[in-house]
Design a protein around this nucleic acid. Structure first.
Length: 592
RNA sequence: GGCGCGGUAGCUCAAUUGGUUAGAGCCCCGGACUGUCGAUCCGGAGGUUGCGGGUUCGAGUCCCGUCCGCGUCGCCA
């Protein structure tokens, strides 16, 4: 090692010792006769003094000319700082190193930005110069937390007898699910591999093989449009277990959540984690990943709306649709007409036609631009249902079930953030269970699997496969952390009768099934144990535990919204020779 | 693909209703300085206002197109 200590290590007890430090020059204060250097590495920052009597004039002069962010090595004695010159913002602030020897290991070109500057540059520049961005404390802390979370996961599953098995990156495309990233085959002209969207099929095969408890940190790829919490390549903690039911899987993950929160954040999370069915989540929060850090539940007032003369309410109820709303506690004076107009435009983005609202006045009556359309009795009933108290703001959407869900979910989420209804360090983890097996494609009217076609229905819903597919619930469960889907899993079908029925419902005939999943169906015929599992979104876990709202902040080299890497400039051009070898030719590309 | 926000010096931002030579701080360069820790002081350099077109006597500002970044809807079994 070139160094004897890190830049975060030295304390008062080291005073008098001869040390060697290596690091980056974060900043430099040149007084001519002496130079103060803040030397940084990932462990911390130590003040280095280059001045008399230890350093000669030439060395002091050289130190003054070192460019910021250069890498240097210094040797010297640890010394107490002068009386009153300590820095209590630094762990190493009681001491400094008096430099006797200094080597510039490598200079730094003038950087477009520095890791220590307070004004963060635009994200495009940060991504282009990711090596500088990653020198920032926040980025280093995020990646260190990521590493710690992964270690906790690995320890946990090793202790629970899981076997880590790697599955292929080059697989075959299956038409279900997200768009695949394809890799052309050189050897097989015109054929393609697909990068895995998840190791789903392989892990089931591993169960058939008897591995019983499989786990993997798996890179997954989906060629879909990006979001703040979505990257085209991401990491799943993927696992599968034999001879288990949904309770077993959730119980196991409860333990992991509690342990991770404890080890990484020092927080206690009570287990078992609360559970809520999908139906209940949709009724109370309008979404299958509700943010449970704050209340403000959706209330259904359709029964009252149906009795009113107000055309919008009455018409909605008569058409079999819904009037549902939120009670925004204590917000009547916090939102002006203009701001409510903004909210109205906001919910329109989600398909709502408008936003009806009422203020609960001091005398307990409801005031609204539309209240003249409603009887006092009905207003009182609405207030009662909404548990309205003076100062509250009641907001309603009148629309289809789906639109009221989407609009009120979005509205609640926005209001929760705007009104700061939760604290940034809150951690709420819960399960959403009993997802529907199927959803109907609006255009074609066909059923499709909500999760995947191998998801087992609830035992008590088996008969509904024939009678009422829409009401058939699955043995599927999602882990939700702070309103974000942090993982999801299912118990799989392991008997061929049920599997055939599900395929039939999905419109997948025997030949198609064989063609798409033949290898899995074949394996299932050779003694498949009952099995199920879950996949956890590692990037999202890190983001949520770090209290961040953007997944790119916890990924070392993320891609932009257009799925580009601004540092390497991937994706890039390739030689025509390479294309020829792969039996490819590009067509229909617009010239710049 | 739709909607919204943004792009001005290396960086972060400003620039009145469309009106003089597009400014400031930081960074950078040169100089001074032995106790700073956002060092200080003096001086200096630095601009195709993302790109292309249009309107106008005049465009950073208005219009059209386009590229890039971000958010979001669709999409993401």
């Amino acid at each position: 090692m070139l160094r004897t200590h890190t830049c975060g290590q030295l304390r008062k007890s080291d005073v008098g010792h001869e040390v060697t430090l290596c690091g980056w020059v974060e900043s430099k204060r040149d007084h001519g006769g002496a130079v103060f250097i803040d030397l940084r590495d990932r462990y911390g920052l130590t003040q280095v003094v280059v001045g008399p009597p230890e350093a000669e004039a030439s060395l002091i002069d050289e130190a003054g000319r070192i460019p910021t962010e250069s890498v240097i090595l210094i040797k010297g004695k640890v010394a107490d700082r002068l009386e009153g010159k300590t820095n209590d913002k630094l762990d190493t602030g009681d001491i400094e190193v008096r430099t006797e020897h200094l080597e510039i290991l490598n200079t730094c070109a003038t950087p477009p930005f520095t890791p220590s500057q307070s004004d963060l540059p635009g994200e495009d520049l940060r991504l282009k110069y990711r090596f500088l961005d990653l020198r920032r404390k926040e980025m280093q802390q995020g990646l260190m937390m990521r590493s710690k979370i992964i270690k906790t996961m690995r320890d946990f599953f090793a202790e629970h007898d899981f076997i880590d098995v790697e599955t292929p990156i080059l697989g075959r495309s299956t038409p279900e699910g997200a768009r695949d990233y394809l890799v052309p085959s050189r050897v097989h002209a015109g054929k393609f591999y697909a990068l895995p969207q998840s190791p789903q099929l392989y892990k089931q095969i591993l169960m058939v093989a008897g591995f019983d408890r499989y786990v993997q940190l798996a890179k997954c790829f989906r060629d879909e449009d990006l979001r703040a919490d979505r990257q085209p390549e991401f990491t799943q903690l993927d696992l599968e277990m034999s001879f288990v039911d949904a309770d077993d899987v959730m119980g196991l993950i409860d333990g992991l959540v509690a342990r991770t929160a404890k080890e990484v954040l020092g927080k206690e999370v009570k287990t078992p984690l609360p559970r809520m069915t999908y139906d209940e989540a949709m009724c109370r929060y309008g979404h299958d990943a509700p943010d449970l850090r704050f209340d403000m539940e959706i209330v259904n007032v359709t029964s009252v709306a149906a009795k009113t003369e107000f055309r919008v309410f009455r018409g909605t109820a008569d058409a079999g649709n819904f009037v549902r709303g939120l009670n925004v506690k204590d917000a009547a004076t916090k939102y002006s007409r203009r701001q409510i107009d903004d909210l109205t435009n906001y919910v329109k983005e989600f398909g709502a036609k408008g936003l009806a609202w009422f203020r609960v006045e001091e005398d307990g009556t409801l005031w609204s631009p539309i209240s003249k359309n409603l009887d006092e009795a009905h207003l009182a009933e609405i207030k009662e249902l909404m548990k309205g108290e003076p100062g509250d703001l009641l907001m309603f959407l009148a629309d289809t079930w789906e639109v009221t869900c989407k609009g009120l979910y979005a509205l609640r989420k926005r209001l929760g953030a705007e009104l700061k209804l939760y604290s940034p360090d809150q951690l709420d983890c819960s399960w959403i269970t009993e997802f529907p097996m199927f959803e109907k494609d609006e255009e074609t009217g066909n059923w499709s699997a909500m999760h995947h076609p191998f998801t087992a229905p609830l035992a008590r819903d088996l008969n509904k496969l024939d009678e009422d597919p829409a009401a058939c619930r699955a043995q599927a469960y999602d882990l939700v952390i702070n309103g974000s889907e942090a993982g999801g899993g299912t118990i799989r079908i392991h008997d061929s009768t049920t599997q055939s029925k599900v395929f039939e419902l999905l419109g997948i005939d025997e030949a198609t099934a064989e063609d798409r999943f033949g290898f899995l169906l074949n394996a299932l015929r050779y003694g498949a144990p009952p099995h199920g599992g879950i996949a956890l979104g590692v990037d999202r876990w890190v983001m949520l535990l770090a209290g961040l709202d953007n997944i790119r902040e916890v990924i070392a080299f993320p891609k932009t919204q257009k799925a580009a890497d601004l540092m390497t400039e991937a994706p890039g051009d390739v030689d025509t020779d390479q294309l020829t070898e792969l039996h490819l030719r590009t067509v229909g590309i617009k010239k710049d």
